[in-house]
């Protein structure tokens, strides 16, 4: 069972690469063979989030242009043998990637790996259509902000117009306190607007910057509040029925009442 997932968004900076890194590493932790592809040609980022930037010798353009063999272009993760990274090129532009060659590569990777995660460039330019061309599943990352949701809607529209059916949403950086106060759109508000399936909710974690600084994705850190959210999402991708966690901030009343209900 091979599956190709493209992680994308309308707006930039909503956490695509971080999401890709955590889902890919999370899936590797669960024992699946995974390759993460950075398709943001010219703006390579996934390598740093995974802490693998010093290991890159060849990138995806080298591979597609025949300057490198597949095995030398696949960078082995230092913590988990199940995970490989295929880095973006820094010197080329998005137009340098041939869609045909890329689709052939995906066919090859499907045979070697259980999961392929493609970190797509933001927006709706050239690189974007390459990123979703070969994918059977699209994951949209959005934050509960008005511009992020507006752009996500546009991307959903384009994907659906291109015949993509399996589109789901990861709602990132949710702040339950603000949702409760009515100062941040709730998941219900957003799902009603976007009308796509919810894959998972990732709460806002002030420690996320630490993980990125160190090149150690949240899933490596068991005490992280986001690690759990990401692991739940990877289990859902494996077909497990993992209920959505409610990140509602608990008041004293709720805590007491919650306990009573459970007994």
């Amino acid at each position: 069972m091979s599956k190709i997932y493209t992680i994308t968004s309308g707006k930039g900076g909503v956490g695509k690469s971080t999401t890709t890194a955590n889902l890919a590493l999370g899936m590797a932790i669960l024992g699946k063979k995974v390759v993460a592809i950075d398709l943001d040609i010219g703006l390579r980022n996934l390598d740093m989030i995974l802490g693998l930037e010093n290991r890159i010798v060849y990138n995806i353009i080298d591979l597609l242009e025949g300057r490198a063999k597949l095995n030398s272009a696949l960078i082995r993760d230092k913590r988990n043998d199940n995970l490989k990274l295929l880095a973006a090129s820094q010197t080329n532009s998005k137009e340098d990637l041939s869609k045909e060659k890329f689709l052939n590569l995906l066919e090859q990777l499907k045979e070697q790996f259980d999961f392929v995660f493609i970190d797509s460039p933001a927006g709706i330019e050239t690189g974007f259509s390459n990123a979703f061309a070969g994918a059977d599943n699209i994951i949209i990352v959005a934050t509960p902000e008005i511009s992020s949701i507006r752009d996500a809607d546009r991307v959903v529209g384009i994907l659906e117009a291109n015949g993509k059916k399996n589109i789901s949403l990861i709602l990132n950086r949710v702040q339950p306190e603000l949702v409760k106060k009515g100062e941040m759109m709730s998941q219900e508000d957003i799902l009603q607007i976007l009308a796509i399936d919810l894959l998972g909710i990732v709460p806002n974690d002030p420690r996320m910057i630490e993980y990125t600084n160190k090149g150690e994705p949240a899933v490596l850190n068991k005490s992280s509040i986001t690690a759990n959210a990401y692991m739940n999402i990877t289990r859902r991708l494996l077909g497990e029925d993992v209920p959505q966690i409610e990140f509602k901030p608990k008041g004293l009343f709720q805590k007491l009442f919650g306990k009573l209900q459970r007994t």
Partner: peptide
């Protein structure tokens, strides 16, 4: 009116228009 409600309402209106235009 809470700002989240306002955001959702504004999105409903603008997206109804944009979807028409782009789709």
């Amino acid at each position: 009116k809470k700002s989240a409600k306002e955001a959702a309402e504004r999105l409903h209106i603008i997206l109804a228009h944009e979807r028409g235009m782009t789709r």
